[in-house]
Simulated scan of single mutants.
Amino acid sequence: MLSEKLLKQIDFIKEIDKIKYIQRKTKLFNSDRNENDAEHSWHLAVMAIVLAEHSDSDIDVLKVVKMVLIHDVVEIDAGDTFIYDTQKNHSNTDEERLAANRIFGLLPQEQAEEFIKIWEEFEAGETNEAKFAKAMDRLEPLLQNTSNNGGTWSEFGVTYDKVYEKKIAIKEGSSSIWNYAEKLIDDSVQKGILKK
């Protein structure tokens, strides 16, 4: 006989398949195809593993990987909010909280509580792990936009000031990665793919 715990875990696994349908504004590297949330989360997880040595603080890499893999699961219900959206705030919303409770609530209680706690930690951005996870989350679209001649910056008229304001969060997780990111931003201005 199958355990109730296993059945709940399988229900959750089936539900999160929907993340593959959540389209982001950013496009894949050197491409005109939009990335989906599943691709984004996978890429961040690999980035976190590869770049962990550049964290300014000691971090639990597995915890960072968990954060980046589940941080956008709430978008199954709440949808993706473009980081440069001028109408809706990109920070934690009531819709995301409801989504976290519903989707993670499909899991057995202990796992549900763990996932909600990890999601909340990422959103708060205060721990070393959350700072590094957020650094990865801000770095990936920067790399994409620079590979796409400005990508969403050009498409949506995003200026240098807005990019700098959002990307400086990288510095909280890694000063060396921030130095690289800041150079990419400056180079993008020099190349004319990011307007001052």
Score class of each variant (00 low, 15 high):
25 K>R: 07
27 K>G: 01
54 H>Y: 15
112 A>Q: 13
34 N>I: 02
53 E>Q: 06
10 I>L: 13
77 D>A: 00
118 I>C: 05
17 D>Y: 00
123 E>M: 11
51 L>S: 03
46 V>L: 10
8 K>E: 15
27 K>N: 11
35 E>F: 08
28 L>C: 06
32 D>P: 00
71 H>F: 06
18 K>T: 00
8 K>V: 03
39 E>N: 14
96 E>T: 03
89 N>A: 14
112 A>S: 15
93 T>K: 13
49 I>L: 06
40 H>L: 03
76 I>M: 08
123 E>H: 08
34 N>A: 04
108 P>S: 14
89 N>V: 12
25 K>H: 10
88 K>G: 08
23 Q>Y: 02
124 A>N: 12
123 E>T: 08
87 Q>S: 15
86 T>A: 05
9 Q>M: 14
85 D>I: 02
9 Q>R: 13
89 N>F: 11
15 E>I: 02
79 G>E: 05
39 E>P: 10
42 W>S: 11
70 I>Y: 08
104 F>I: 02
96 E>Q: 15
75 E>N: 01
11 D>F: 10
17 D>H: 01
117 K>T: 06
52 A>I: 00
108 P>A: 15
120 E>P: 03
125 G>Q: 14
12 F>S: 05
92 N>I: 11
61 V>R: 04
67 M>G: 04
99 A>Y: 12
82 F>P: 00
113 E>K: 14
86 T>I: 10
48 A>W: 01
22 I>K: 06
119 W>Q: 12
45 A>C: 06
34 N>E: 10
83 I>D: 01
102 R>T: 09
115 F>D: 08
87 Q>P: 11
57 S>V: 00
67 M>H: 07
126 E>G: 02
97 R>V: 13
59 I>L: 10
40 H>W: 02
117 K>P: 01
